[in-house]
Write a protein that binds this DNA or RNA. Structure first.
Length: 696
DNA sequence: CGACCCAGAG
């Protein structure tokens, strides 16, 4: 609980010492407050403030402008307390709102305490409390308060309704959403822009895109917020094309996109790992002048990292003048983790703490993830302790899963299992699956069998567990048990999601599925794979058939493995992409163990850099090593712009270089509205640009 | 007092 500052007789020296401008009128006072310049506001109005409690509301609003500290809000609270105005309902509502709205800096416990102690509550009181709970993602409690408010005989207005929908959205609780929607219709709030937008947002968050868009169509006008709702909604539901389409639509009707628009678009681009698209949007961001807005920055950092351009992430991070924003730090820590740069993630974390920022539980999650994926077991354990004991943060199931991953990966299987059994939250299927993959890595069949059963208790559809159980039992010749597993699979109608890989070539995306032979260059692909396989075997490669059902013939198993979708995609890429361009593959599942091993060999034999982005992370293969086992890693440079950004008809002289391999010039056209070209310039990879020449 | 947006395990 936040402590009130001691103040007694002398009023808050810290707040009044450095005033430079004295407000003369109440209007001045309000203006200064609204800009967050509270010291100056107070300095000129100190006498009056004691007798006019209404002035406090302006001060409290001033506490909520971005970049204000909780400390300052507490000081104002102290002042109000000293003035005896804390129980004034109007002021108290503002106070509640201040604690609720300071974002990460807020103090929802303080808000809650105030709420509980308030002698009388009106609709605004409840609204402020529900808004605060929604703000802190305490969605369940938020809805609970909404219900209590109605039980108390109060009629929720448009303010409370918006927050209630936000809670439903957070919980993906479409049931409550429907109920509150009915209340909205009955009470004539359906044409309110704010209610409508948050209602539409709720539907879209729950996956009901059409319902959401219908609500927005029923609103009296189209504005930036309603467009943003659609764009973000489509983006979150995987409809990147639709999001981009609505973006051009809103521009066509003359609405200027704001930073929220871009945040939605940028996340859409990282979901698709579509670098070219992301760069275009980045250029638009710069044009719109919102590139220094914090949420935009953090989503850009994340987008570039997810598209494989860690360098660009760190460039954006280092350009942040106020690198002090927690989310920006966390995004960068996560970006390092995503690429297996655990040491850098730790260094950044330490730096962040040294500069006086308190990490959140999300920061710790990213950090633990980074430790786990870089094999930094002891560091991970150290930070887990730090999180609980120094920062008093209660680990969530996600943190425990990270720790199980960390311990399991490094072979401490017993310790990992003990952690699952002793943690204060109930285990879910995911944490047992994590445990299972550790058992597999460290070849502990006995434990794996037990763990696989735990997984299946919680997720009867998990095909990997069935395959594993069946194979373990087959190796110990327990044939009766094997048929039992098969029967269970049939009964539960377990189906495996088919694995897919994608490669981008000349602006087109090629898709590959295992055993697929529909590619026009299939003959060449097969030949190349055969050649590669022969060479791989000479170098010591052995197919790993442990993930394939035991009852196939050995030869059949190997043929199946040899035509896994990722291998097909890589063969196609080797045939198509020019030498020196990194091969970038995207996958819908995790890269399988055999392919992971095989790609190491291929990177060596074909002398290619291969970057595989699977559902969880990046694998950078180079010279027979993968970054995820602590090896070296390549970085992306704009040398591959020709492949993923520039059209073929555009030409300008630019020379591209990096510190390692590439140093060459090429011709591309840089027109005034050539966003990619700008980006190359902005990122400084382009050393020189000569005059624009015509096509050909 | 308000809608839309940023970091996140496997």
């Amino acid at each position: 609980m936040a402590q009130l500052p001691r103040l007694a007789a002398s009023p808050i020296p810290a707040l009044v010492s450095t005033a430079v401008h004295l407000p003369k009128s109440e209007q001045d006072f309000v203006h200064l407050c609204s800009k967050g310049r509270l010291r100056e506001a107070l300095r000129g109005f100190l006498p009056e403030i004691w007798s006019d409690p209404n002035l406090f509301s302006h001060l409290l609003n001033g506490c909520c402008v971005p970049q204000q500290s909780l400390r300052q809000g507490q000081q104002i609270h102290g002042l109000i307390f000293a003035a005896g105005a804390a129980s004034h309902r109007f002021t108290a509502n503002h106070l509640l709102h201040m604690y609720s709205k300071l974002g990460q800096n807020g103090d929802i416990h303080a808000a809650r305490k105030l709420f509980d102690e308030m002698p009388e509550r009106n609709v605004a009181t409840w609204n402020a409390m529900i808004t605060g709970l929604a703000h802190f993602e305490l969605d369940e409690e938020g809805l609970e308060f909404f219900r209590r408010m109605r039980e108390a005989g109060l009629r929720p207005d448009e303010f409370g309704l918006g927050s209630a929908f936000r809670c439903c959205a957070g919980l993906k609780d479409i049931g409550s959403g429907h109920q509150i929607h009915a209340y909205v219709v009955r009470n004539g709030f359906e044409h309110d822009m704010c209610v409508g937008s948050s209602l539409a947002h709720m539907y879209m968050r729950c996956g009901c895109l059409d319902d959401g868009e219908r609500v927005l169509k029923g609103l009296p006008i189209i504005n930036v917020v309603s467009c943003n709702t659609i764009i973000a909604g489509r983006a979150q539901n995987g409809d990147t094309e639709g999001a981009v389409h609505h973006f051009s639509l809103m521009k066509a009707v003359g609405l200027s996109p704001d930073h929220v628009t871009f945040v939605g678009l940028i996340s859409a681009c990282s979901d698709l790992a579509s670098l070219g698209q992301g760069q275009q949007v980045h250029a638009e961001v710069i044009k719109a002048g919102v590139d220094s807005v914090i949420p935009v920055r953090s989503s850009l950092i994340s987008m570039y990292s997810k598209c494989g351009c860690l360098d660009d992430s760190s460039k954006i991070f280092s350009e942040s003048d106020e690198g002090s924003d927690l989310v920006v730090w966390s995004s960068m820590i996560a970006a390092y983790g995503f690429h297996g740069h655990g040491e850098e993630a730790i260094q950044l974390f330490d730096k962040m703490v040294r500069e006086g920022n308190d990490p959140s539980e999300v920061t710790f999650l990213s950090l633990l993830y980074a430790c786990s994926h870089s094999g930094l077991k002891d560091k991970g354990k150290e930070y887990f302790e730090l999180m609980m004991h120094k920062y008093g943060l209660k680990p969530t199931l996600k943190h425990y899963t990270c720790m199980v991953d960390l311990l399991g990966r490094s072979g401490c299987l017993d310790e990992a299992e003990t952690l699952i059994r002793s943690m204060p939250v109930p285990a879910d299927a995911v944490i047992w699956k994590t445990m299972l993959s550790a058992c597999k890595t460290h070849k502990n069949a006995q434990m794996a069998e037990r763990v696989a059963e735990s997984v299946l208790r919680l997720d009867p559809q998990d095909s990997a567990s069935y395959v594993l159980l069946s194979n373990i039992r087959a190796t110990t010749a327990r044939w009766i048990d094997v048929s039992e597993v098969r029967r269970a699979m049939r009964e539960k109608r377990v189906r495996k999601e088919p694995g897919l890989s994608w490669v981008e070539y000349k602006g087109q995306v090629y898709q590959f599925s295992t055993g697929d032979t529909s590619n026009p260059r299939q003959k060449e692909i097969d030949q190349l794979l055969e050649q590669l396989l022969g060479r791989m075997r000479e170098l010591g490669y052995l197919p790993d058939t442990s993930t394939v059902f035991h009852d196939m013939e050995e030869e059949e198993k190997e043929t199946s493995l040899a035509h896994h979708n990722e291998k097909l995609a890589i063969a196609f890429a080797i045939l198509s992409l020019p030498v020196g361009v990194p091969i970038r593959i995207m996958k819908n599942l995790r890269v399988c163990d055999d392919c992971h091993e095989a790609i190491k060999y291929i990177s060596n034999i074909a002398e290619r850099e291969i970057v595989v982005r699977d559902v969880t992370r990046f694998h950078h293969f180079r010279d027979g090593e993968c970054s995820c086992k602590g090896g070296s890693y390549p970085t992306f440079f704009y040398s591959n712009l020709t492949e993923c950004g520039f059209g073929e008809r555009n030409r300008v002289q630019m020379s591209i270089s990096d510190s390692t391999k590439f140093d060459h010039s090429e011709l591309v056209d840089l027109k005034a509205d050539d966003h990619d070209g700008w980006l190359a310039l902005i990122f400084g990879n382009c050393k020189a640009v000569s005059g624009v020449s015509s096509d050909g």
